[in-house]
Simulated assay, not measured.
Amino acid sequence: MKICLPIISLLLISCLANAQNSAVLGDKFAQGKLENYLENAKSLKESQAFFEPVKNAKENCLVLNKDTIAVFKPIPIKEDLKYKLSFMVRAETKETIEENPRLALILLGRGSWLPCRDITFFDAEMKPLGRRSHYDGCLPFGTWFNFIDVFYPLPKAAFMQLSFQTRKDSKLFIRDISLSPSPDEGSINTNPSFSLGKYNYSGWPSKHTDGRLLERPDGRVIFDTGYGSGSESFPISPGKHRLYAKGSTYGGYQEIIFFFMDNNGKEISKTGMNSTPEGIQKEFMVPDGAVRGRFLIYNNVLDELRLTRVGENPK
């Protein structure tokens, strides 16, 4: 019993710490103090960042004035788990997407002008592994917009840290941030049918300059990859897998390339195919030593791109 009590105590402390970290991105800022959420709270002036009540809602929002960076406290994660980050955001800028719908296309090619949302990943010793910058995650909507990001952490990641940055001509209002395991999308890769919306590039951090999400007349969203758009990397396991692609091709060179990589990101081998309007599938065995994979796609307009283990049918 004397041996078990310290172990139980450590487990309780760990659980309490995880619960506290989860509250950083899950309690709608109910605590009302910046220092309970932001790692850099002490370095911010009162005029730069503060909480205010949301009109007609029983919650607070975080207000970031121009030229401000808000860095949230790190929270624990698992590297092989797919996550869903969601938050409500609106902006005060000279022009909004509601006023000019083409503004999104213009600004996505000029990311440094936009407010930015970053996710930085750390290993178990809190050494930085890299970050993902998302200018499309803070597009200037004048009314509340529900943004969702589905993603995998970087290899060896044990913690993640969320941050927001405004520019000289922008002011952000952020509320209802939450992080949870992603619901089943029927695929290993993220956002397989682009159903998260025409402004949501989840899973595709490396878009070609001409890469665009487009909305068809029937409301469905498709992805024009341009000449070389790259997906994030994601975990894969040994065994037989099925790649399903539905869409069309154009241009002189078209290909969907899937890279197999080891845990250090080194390419082991690759396979390829192209989408068709009827949908096409290809089965393959994961080579020895491969633990992650990613896509690089040229000149495909995709309705759907879905990687599953054999036995799981494309939806």
Rank of each mutant, 00 (worst) to 15 (best):
C4M: 14
L10A: 09
I13F: 09
S14L: 11
L16H: 09
L16D: 05
A17E: 11
Q20Y: 12
Q20L: 11
Q20P: 03
A23S: 15
V24T: 14
L25E: 10
G26P: 13
F29Y: 14
A30E: 14
A30C: 02
K33L: 08
E35F: 11
N36W: 09
Y37P: 03
L38V: 07
L38S: 10
L38Y: 07
E39N: 02
L44S: 13
A49E: 09
E52V: 02
E52I: 05
P53Y: 07
P53R: 03
E59I: 02
N60R: 11
N60T: 01
L62F: 02
V63I: 14
L64F: 03
L64Q: 05
N65Q: 13
D67I: 01
V71S: 09
F72G: 07
K73C: 07
K73Y: 05
K82C: 13
Y83F: 10
K84L: 13
V89Y: 00
A91H: 06
E95V: 04
E98Y: 00
N100R: 01
N100W: 00
P101I: 01
L105G: 13
I106H: 15
I106N: 14
L108I: 06
R110Q: 14
S112P: 01
C116I: 03
I119E: 01
I119L: 15
F121T: 01
M126W: 06
S133K: 06
S133N: 05
Y135M: 13
Y135C: 06
T143W: 01
T143D: 07
F151L: 04
P153E: 07
P153Q: 11
K156V: 01
K156I: 01
A157T: 04
A157I: 07
F159D: 05
S163C: 02
F164S: 01
Q165V: 05
D169C: 04
F173L: 12
L179K: 04
L179G: 00
S180F: 04
S180G: 00
P181W: 05
D184R: 00
E185K: 06
E185D: 05
G186A: 04
N189K: 13
T190W: 10
N191I: 08
P192V: 09
F194N: 05
S195K: 13
K198W: 01
Y199H: 15
N200Q: 08
Y201L: 03
S202L: 04
S206I: 09
P217K: 15
D218S: 07
D218N: 15
D218P: 00
R220W: 02
R220E: 14
F223A: 11
F223Q: 10
Y227M: 15
G230I: 10
G230V: 08
G230M: 13
F234R: 12
P238L: 12
P238W: 15
H241A: 08
R242D: 11
L243C: 09
S248G: 07
T249E: 12
G252W: 04
Y253V: 10
I256W: 02
F258A: 03
F259E: 12
F260T: 06
M261P: 00
N263F: 10
N263D: 15
N264G: 11
E267G: 03
I268H: 02
S269K: 12
M273A: 03
N274M: 10
T276L: 05
E278M: 06
Q281L: 04
E283N: 08
V286N: 06
D288S: 13
D288M: 08
G293Q: 07
G293R: 08
I297A: 02
L302Y: 14
E304L: 06
L305S: 14
R306I: 12
R306G: 01
L307C: 05
R309I: 04
G311M: 07
P314Q: 04
K315R: 03
